[in-house]
């Protein structure tokens, strides 16, 4: 039973990571590519990590509390937390750097940040 759940999680994870790589090719500019690159990979990685956690929990349960299998579960949970914190942070950094260096969003309907920059607001004082 639990093996079926693990396979389903692995399937979902691989599917979303695949979509992310398609998105990188299909989208027109850096911002929309970041959408694919952050969201889909995070979601896919969450499900891959959940599969590893389930597998580790099963091993831990089968082989007893002191068997040394807790390392798989707990380290994967820590890796998951790190992915959830660092992935959006990296996306912010790339998006902000791109906008500051003059890359404007393609096909943009509205760009409040550019308007504010022109007025001299929105720019950080240093």
């Amino acid at each position: 039973m639990i093996e079926i759940i693990i396979y389903v999680f692995l399937g979902i994870g691989v599917f979303f990571n695949l979509l992310a790589s398609f998105g990188l090719i299909r989208f027109p500019d850096v911002y929309t590519r970041l959408h694919a690159g952050t969201k889909c990979t995070t979601f896919g990685s969450i499900f891959l990590s959940l599969a590893v956690i389930m597998y580790g929990l099963r091993l831990w349960y089968l082989e007893g509390f002191n068997s040394g299998n807790s390392v798989l579960v707990i380290h994967t949970i820590i890796a998951l937390i790190c992915i959830l914190v660092t992935n959006p942070t990296g996306a912010h950094a790339i998006a902000r750097a791109a906008h500051r260096s003059g890359v404007m969003p393609a096909k943009a309907v509205v760009d409040d940040l550019k308007d504010d920059r022109k007025k001299g607001r929105g720019r950080k004082k240093k």
Binding site: Y31, P105, A108, V109, D111, D112, D116
Partner: peptide, 9 residues
């Protein structure tokens, strides 16, 4: 491929 992007505040 249907997108309608923009930056809002």
């Amino acid at each position: 491929g249907r997108i309608n992007p923009g930056i809002v505040k």
